[in-house]
């Protein structure tokens, strides 16, 4: 039980295989609901993965990450509303708009630390929420229905549910790979160094503010991409997409799965959303269970599911061969 076959790796591999094979199951058994549910899970996992870059690796406790979901989504929705359906225009606009928003609020928020940072990112995200709520032309509070999904060249057709699922999944894996490469690069090391001890990083000559800001913008851009996908998935975008409780959900996914791990946010997203689905099947008042459950995770399982899995792996390893576990 050493090397690649730890409990953690096996579980992750099983999850990936399950996600890849899910449409097959859905087609064979005619279960269309599960495909819709998991498309949503994959998209929100992408948002959680992007949040993990700043929250987990960067140590920046952003409580406003849902804003990018909204901005990316509204970029698609507003352009579609104006009659521009091409994904080659919609998606770059979504990415640029989120990057720009991240640049502005990042430049302001990163001047502060700790609780200030939490509250400020929260407040700016709420500002964006109220901004779109006030735009009567684009539906205001009621949101905006998107009549046509983003158009790409044939044979890519996002209206096909299976195709769309695989597009989302490919983007998700691409993002995980990108972040894995990034966090192992010199840039990623500097950002993680600034998380551990910013004063020291500055002392040895790293402009930590700029490093953090770039990291913040990358995460925001990926969040915007998730937003563009989410709007296409729901064929609808409303201010509720960027309400602050959604930012809270994303943080939960990251922490539940395991912070600063490549696959943690994906595990967390699957766990949280499947749990929600199961609990809401049991009782209408499912949040009364979820809330205290969350509290218990915070109090007793800090490493999240990923942490539990590696703990399990370590235990099994020490049983089989006491030398491996140490």
């Amino acid at each position: 039980m050493s090397g690649a076959f730890t409990a953690r790796n096996v579980a992750t591999a099983a999850l990936i295989a399950g996600l890849v094979l899910l449409p097959v199951y859905s087609q064979v058994f005619g279960d269309r609901f599960i495909l819709t549910l998991f498309t949503r899970i994959v998209i929100l996992a992408l948002a959680a993965v992007s949040l993990n870059l700043i929250l987990g690796f960067g140590g920046m406790m952003s409580f406003g990450h849902a804003a990018y979901l909204g901005i990316g989504g509204y970029a698609v929705g507003m352009l579609a509303h104006e009659g521009i359906y091409s994904g080659f225009i919609q998606w770059p606009v979504a990415l640029l708009a989120s990057a720009l928003f991240a640049l502005v609020i990042g430049a302001l928020s990163l001047r502060t630390r700790g609780v200030y940072f939490i509250m400020i990112t929260l407040a700016f995200a709420q500002m964006a929420y109220y901004l779109v709520s006030g735009l009567a032309r684009y539906g205001g509070d009621d949101g905006l229905t998107i009549y046509k999904r983003s158009q790409f060249i044939e044979p890519l057709n996002l209206s096909n549910k299976v195709q769309f699922y695989y597009v989302c999944l490919a983007i998700l894996f691409g993002a995980i790979y990108l972040i894995w490469r990034l966090t192992n690069s010199r840039f990623g090391m500097a950002v993680q160094g600034a998380r551990s001890n910013e004063a020291r990083m500055r002392a040895i000559g790293f402009p930590t503010y700029r490093y953090r800001l770039v990291c913040f913008v990358i995460a925001g851009t990926l969040g915007g991409l998730a937003g563009a996908l989410l709007a296409n998935h729901a064929d609808f975008i409303s201010p509720a997409t960027m309400y602050w409780t959604r930012s809270g959900d994303l943080i939960i996914m990251v922490v539940l799965g395991g912070m600063a791990t490549p696959f943690g946010p994906l595990i967390g997203a699957v766990a949280l959303l499947v749990l929600e689905e199961v609990l809401s099947g049991i009782t209408e008042y499912w949040q009364i269970i979820l809330g205290p459950l969350l509290l218990l995770v915070v109090l007793f399982a800090r490493g999240g599911i990923d942490g539990l899995l590696s703990l399990l792996g370590a235990k099994v390893a020490t049983k089989v061969n006491p030398k491996v576990g140490s």
Partner: peptide, 22 residues
């Protein structure tokens, strides 16, 4: 950690909202 505070009290919000609804 402050992140623990945020998550824990977020759980409390869910609990309170639902308890009030109940």
């Amino acid at each position: 950690d402050h992140l623990d505070h945020v998550l824990g009290t977020f759980g409390l919000i869910l609990f309170f909202d639902e308890a009030v609804r109940l």
